[in-house]
Design a binder for these strands. Sequence first.
RNA 1: UGGGGCGUCGCCAAGUUGGUAAGGCACGGGGUUUUGGUCCCCGCAUUCGUGGGUUCGAGUCCUACCGCCCCAGCCA
Length: 567
Amino acid sequence: MTAPDAEVPAKSGPAPARDFIRQIVDEDNRVGKWGGRVHTRFPPEPNGYLHIGHAKSICLNFGLAKEFGGLCNLRFDDTNPAKEEVEYVDAIQEDVRWLGFSWDDRLFYASDYFEKLYAFAEQLIEKGLAYVDDLSQEEIRAYRGTLTEPGKDSPCRDRAPEENLDLFRRMRAGEFPDGAKVLRLKIDMQSPNVVLRDPVIYRIKHVEHHRTGNTWCIYPMYDYTHCISDALEGITHSICSLEFENNRPLYDWVLNQLPVPGHPQQIEFARLNLSYTVLSKRKLIQLVTEKVVSGWDDPRLPTLSGIRRRGYTPEAMRDFCERIGVSKADSQVDMALLEHCLREDLNARAKRLMGVLRPLKLVITNYPEGQAEDIHFPYHPEDASMGARQVPFSRELYVERDDFMEVPAKKWFRLAPGAEVRLRHAYYVTCTEVIKDPATGEVVELRCVHDPATKGGWSSDGRKVKGTIHWVSAAHALPAEVRLYDRLFTKENPTEGKGDFLDHINPHSLEVIENALIEPALADIPVGENVQFERLGYFCVDKDSTPQKRVFNRSVALKDSWAKAAR
RNA sequence: UGGGGCGUCGCCAAGUUGGUAAGGCACGGGGUUUUGGUCCCCGCAUUCGUGGGUUCGAGUCCUACCGCCCCAGCCA
């Protein structure tokens, strides 16, 4: 049902609001700035897994291309071999595909351009716009000045182009150790924008690159690489997040000095923040390596692989990305919106089945022992096309512990001594006896009588039963493990304030129910598929499932106005 | 303290020649209902960070403040 690799369907219905980026594209098209061309790119660094914040960017970039009949490239920004790995390259592609987007043959790597980048750097040197600096890292930092004081020129700043060229070539040849020299742009050490104070564009790193191997020992830096890569690919709109706003003058500066085929427009938007979680690669990687969670695909994580395993659908993710909008204001989106998007999607498409999380035995004393019957159960109350299955019913059932109250609260419609409820699609049943463990006082069994005339869950005498509960037949039910998830952090913004964000981990973010019981049909649901456990929530089959025991992840609970009222 | 951004309902977010505050989520109320689900109604900013000013009229223009975010990696 998650339809991996499915193309994003064309949008129907009202057009989404024109965010400021779409307005820029509209205007560009109006004046013919790019000849009607729209070409974007999604440029992840393969140094971690993608998260929901990336989904926002993916939907924006690929979505924009799709809407305007343009193209969107997938480009790995792999200029720092010390941090990047193929594992991430593979995972990222899987995630983008899962979201429903494709890049056809436009899979690129910044490392594809290393040779060109190098040649451009020599040109810059020849034009006297770049120089090799011998200063140490600490010295460069000291020379850079501070936010309020201008920097000062490096002693190497006025080296002759020929000398710079010679040095730069020897850097490439591997004549110097890591950190011995760097190539810097000659811009302005007094600039109020620190980014422009002769930025380093090449550093020496004798590190093997996941794609270029040991071909290089010097690697270009982001500011230099990104703009040129964009230009080489014919990108029209280079969309990135707000923190790169300071870098835009540098982006433009580099492209203005070089004979590149075009000059894309960099546009910055506010990255996503989600309540009760963290969305930074550094923190996510920390959660994984410090084993706070089980891995990159832990269902509690906001990584796309975690979200996918949790049971979120690409449709819900895209809807979410559309609903949050695009702007330049820092914001933190309420987790409730994400959950809403999933519920809305699954409400329409998920089969309804029954599972009991915390079983309480219920015996129907006036139902013949040894008898069983099949109950007709539609898969969806509003969509008959989804079909139906037979659910076995018998004298001994299990119902949800939470559906019984020995001393009912006011407005309680479910089981209680003497109360009549409907067993969904089966019979009306009245609780006649409550059996307790004499030692602990715990309720261990309910005795009930059923009304045979209410078969199917309906009475012809106009009798009103307000409560309907779900059930499984004791003899037919199958064991299952169910994992319930809650927010990973107890603080809305775990990063805020002093102290470590790990101090705010929610100790109850995972609850494993080992002894749940499910109806037989639930055993046939394939891994990854979403279903609704009636009255409980949407669940999906986890990959940890075995033929003996299915494992379900609760993706999101159903809205529960009773629980809300009780609170 | 230099530079770059941002501030419209609890959370997002429209608002584009200034003309009298969209929508979604959340929340509250009611109806329907064999999921206390769904669905359907209704309500929810005399107000746009604040103070001045221009104007017949300002969220939209001017001005002065205030608050928050980003930048001093040989990270991206």
